[in-house]
Nucleic acid binder design. Sequence first.
DNA 1: CCATAGATTGACT
DNA 2: GTCAATCTATGGA
Length: 198
Amino acid sequence: MTNSSGRLSRRFFARPTLEVAQDLVGQILVKKQGKSRIRARIVEVEAYLGVGADAASHAHRGPTPRNSEMFETPGRLYVYLIYGVHYCMNVVCERRGEAGAVLLRAAEPIEGLSIMRQRRPREGPELTNGPGKLSSALGVDLRSNGLDLVTGPMGLWPGDPAACVERSSRIGIRQATEFRYRFFDPDSHYVSQGKPSS
DNA sequence: CCATAGATTGACT
DNA sequence: GTCAATCTATGGA
C-alpha cells in the first residue's frame, strides 16, 4: 500500500476509517522543514466516523465550514482548532464525499527533536504525548488544513509495526462513549495520559 | 441575539 | 484537585 516514493498510498487511506486507524499505529509521520525534516512514530490514534454514524464526530451532523475536509479526498489532513486554543491533526479516510478521519493523538519523536523543542520547550514524552502537543511540536496549524499527505511536504511512511495494538474507548468525549475507537501501542512511553471515556 | 459545550493543555490551589 | 484560555457549531429566545 505504498506508492513509488515509498509513502503510504491514496489506496491506504481510501478505506473504512476504523481499518486505517488500526493500521496507522507504528507508521512514521514525516514533515519536511526546508533542509531538515521531522520524523515521529505514531503510537496513539482515534477514529471518527461519518454523517449519522458517530455522535462524537465533527461530521456527524453533515458538512460545515470547519469540517469540510472530512468529506474531501482521502489522504489529506484535517486540522481544527479545539477550545479556541490548540490544534488537532487528523488523516481523512473513506472515499471522497464520505466523511471519516483519524485523529493523531501521540507519537514518538525520531528525528528533528531540536526543531520540536524550539516550538515546545519540553523534555521526554511531554513533547508529543497528546493531540495538541503533537500538532504544536510539528508546527501544524490551520495553514496545514487540507494538505495532501500522499504528495505534499508532510506524509506517512511505513514503520515498525507495533508488537501489539490495544483498543479502548476514546478520550475526552461525552458523546458515543461506548465505541472503542481508540488504538494505541501499549509499549510506548509516549501514549497520552488521559483516561478513556467509558 | 445570547448561552453553552467541546476530539485540550497548562497554570495554579 | 480546579479553572481559564477563546474559536466553532448548535440550540433557544
